[in-house]
Design a binder for these strands. Structure first.
Lengths: 218, 218
DNA sequence: TGTTAGGTTAATATCGACATTTTAATCCTT
DNA sequence: AAGGATTAAAATGTCGATATTAACCTAACA
């Protein structure tokens, strides 16, 4: 990566630290501690924090500093419900608009996901699996062709990942991969057959159902 | 308003200046000029600019400062198309979930809009009319009950307003209010009758059609 | 014993200054 | 005279310092 300013580097790492749960919800983000951790001055820190405020990962209280946004069951339900609707919208548009290259990419991504699923189930590198998983679903929704919609989708995915990582911490290595894999196959079939209604229903469930498991943790 | 830090004040004003077109697309945002205009130091400015970068209203080039994001016909089409889909989604969910208070608020907002429409057509205070218009549509979508979805909707609305204000500048006092008003009446009827399909189609057109006029300006 | 007032400590928000980098303007060479 | 190199000017990114504000602890009083 090219030389980027300190704020951008801090943003990247701090965002990671929040999403992965290193800084838990509600945690007070003291300048002194952050300066120490990221080895930068206050001003780049404030810039990064300002950006995280817009992303709704950090709250700012005037003259009272910054804190990691609290999590709540209400927000969890809302995010996953919204994600399900947005993803469903993306899939629908992708089926209407997707071309041949789009189809090929889906098949490729599905193959990569499936061939690595077994390996990862063994050694338990869930973050790596999640990346493939993400890539698979992105291959599908990419067909909608809308930068704006894909951005909205990504924002929601990132907001959700804080909750998802919460789950990974408590349920390390205890994944329901088999069910998941079957859902993926059904999804690919419906999408490639351009079966709009089935595909939209499948993806909606694929997002909503796991969120119901998550709800038990809060 | 309570005492808020400088960055928040700058953010508000600078955002306004960009959305209303005071700072046109592509304009270089020099620190010296911004310091002069908003009467603050560099650091609050950089915080505000960082936030606007996340909102995709400002671009940052490393060591080369900030510029207002360029506009393009591609983005215009994408934003309005996405807005139409999102708004349609909101309306659909609102019809499914809205209660009696929601219905009452719609009727109230529609009344306010209609009773002020004639007045504003005369003296031409389009910004005030736009606020009522916004309020009317918000009253409808509010029924979806999803904070996340409403936030996505608001973000897109704000991004679109830069294009809308571009139109207002070139077409001052030349509104198609009558057509608009009729569409609103049809929408209210469909929504209150909980006619999902009609309402979704109406709102989709209500957003898409004006955007096609806008496309001529770029 | 619970509460409030005062003083102490710590943290935040902002500014001015400096080092670094980019932009421009000028000058030299061919 | 044109193009490239060199120098000057301006702008950016970062840090340290300072004033202001909130949080905390202690102690006195009801």
């Amino acid at each position: 990566m090219p030389q980027e300013n300190s704020a951008a580097k801090v943003l990247f790492h701090l965002k990671q630290d929040i999403l992965t749960g290193f800084f838990v919800a509600g945690h007070k983000l003291k300048m002194s501690a952050l300066k120490e951790r990221y080895q930068v001055g206050v001003n780049p820190l404030r810039e990064a924090l300002s950006q995280l405020v817009v992303m709704q990962l950090v709250q700012v209280h005037d003259q009272r500093g910054y804190r990691v946004c609290p999590v709540s069951q209400t927000e969890l339900v809302d995010i996953y419900d919204t994600r399900a609707h947005i993803e469903s919208l993306c899939v629908g548009l992708a089926i209407e608009r997707g071309d041949e290259a789009w189809e090929a990419n889906i098949v490729a991504a599905a193959y990569r996901l499936q061939s690595n699923a077994d390996l990862l189930k063994a050694d338990g590198d869930l973050q790596a699996w999640e990346k493939l998983h993400q890539g698979f679903h992105y291959a599908i929704v990419k067909g909608c062709g809308s930068e704006e919609l894909l951005r909205v989708r990504l924002d929601l995915y990132e907001k959700a990942s804080r909750y998802r990582n919460l789950w990974l911490k408590h349920n390390a290595g205890h994944g329901a991969f088999d069910v998941n894999q079957m859902e993926h196959e059904q999804l690919v079939t419906a999408v490639l057959a351009r079966d709009l209604e089935s595909a939209k229903k499948l993806i909606f469930k694929h997002i909503i159902v796991p969120s119901q498991v998550l709800q038990g943790l809060l």
